[in-house]
Simulated assay, not measured.
Amino acid sequence: MRISVYSPPYLFKGGRPQILSMAGSQWAYGTTKQITVDGPILKAALIRPEAVTHSSDPNQRYVDLPMTVTGTTIGLNLTSNPNLAPPGWYMLYVVGTNGVPSVAQWVQVPVTGPRRGLLVLAVLGVLGVGAAGIWFVAAPGEHASPVAAAAPRPTDSTWPGLAAGPSAAAPVTPSAAAPAETSAPAAGAGGPAEPVAAPFVQNYAGQPGVKPLKPLPSPTGTHYVRPNVDGCDHNYGGITQCVPWTFPAGTTDKCAWLAGHGFKNLKVAATDRQRLDRDGNGIACDD
């Protein structure tokens, strides 16, 4: 086993400041809380604890605290804007004049006012949805026996073959608790057959109606790319050089224009369409 311990450089710049006392750990929005320290302080801040997932920390937050200093007694002003400091627990740090932070103290910013009611409603809503889901999955029905409790029971008209209303589901007896295919009993004397409750299976999850296409064969030949596909005449020079496919209007001496832009002794890779190889030695503009 190999363990690496990281110590940040600022911890070697001198002693760490200390928070000697703090006026409570519950900090309401828009209030000023006093702390006492053991020496001069440069700044103070609240830092949200980590909540790391998938290599990111979505809970990361730094809340600066304006200070009112009276000797070693410091008043820290917490913002009144919950968007800057959402409710929850924070670590309170003070930083000394040498740039070294203190050991943190835990501070809680509680939910107050209308936000408390919204949070309570949100929690109750989540709990209500969860309870409804548990009931829907686990509820065996008003008159089902314990043996038949695991049998699914459709509850509305969205299940094919069942009419709306609680009377549409036929009672399930212990002998019928074992899985069975959907079937309907024979019709009575002149009456329609009653549907039997059975698991509903979506039919869209079946095999598609068309066969998948076979993979195309890998190309075996070369593919022609126009030499001016990017506006450059790649008949000249290397891959990193761009001789204009069309020179600016009024250009009378192309080699002089190229020399003025840093192009000299360009190798003719293919066709000399610009007539720049005047001596025919395979090098453009070398004379």
Rank of each mutant, 00 (worst) to 15 (best):
76 L>C: 05
59 N>I: 00
158 T>I: 14
215 P>D: 01
222 T>F: 04
228 N>Y: 08
41 I>Y: 03
80 S>I: 06
82 P>S: 13
140 P>N: 07
60 Q>I: 02
154 P>F: 10
24 G>Q: 00
76 L>D: 03
52 V>M: 01
142 E>H: 08
193 A>C: 07
51 A>G: 05
125 G>P: 05
193 A>T: 07
38 D>K: 08
26 Q>W: 10
48 R>P: 03
239 I>A: 05
134 I>S: 13
70 T>E: 06
212 P>V: 11
72 T>H: 09
253 D>F: 08
254 K>N: 04
109 V>I: 15
203 N>P: 08
125 G>W: 02
75 G>V: 12
168 A>Q: 09
29 Y>H: 04
273 R>I: 14
185 P>R: 11
46 L>G: 01
37 V>M: 07
167 S>A: 15
148 A>F: 02
66 P>D: 08
22 M>Y: 04
178 A>N: 09
154 P>W: 12
273 R>M: 07
61 R>G: 03
237 G>M: 06
280 G>S: 12
2 R>M: 04
154 P>Y: 08
244 P>H: 10
264 K>R: 14
163 A>T: 12
247 F>N: 06
240 T>C: 05
224 Y>I: 01
237 G>Q: 01
253 D>C: 08
75 G>Y: 13
274 Q>F: 11
119 L>D: 06
7 S>W: 11
228 N>H: 02
187 A>I: 05
48 R>D: 06
12 F>K: 11
188 G>F: 11
149 A>G: 14
6 Y>A: 06
122 A>P: 05
44 A>D: 05
212 P>K: 07
186 A>R: 04
138 A>H: 10
230 D>Y: 09
232 C>E: 04
207 Q>K: 13
55 S>W: 08
114 P>A: 13
167 S>V: 11
34 Q>S: 01
279 D>W: 02
40 P>S: 05
2 R>T: 01
182 T>N: 07
36 T>L: 09
75 G>Q: 14
171 P>F: 03
93 Y>K: 01
278 R>E: 11
233 D>R: 04
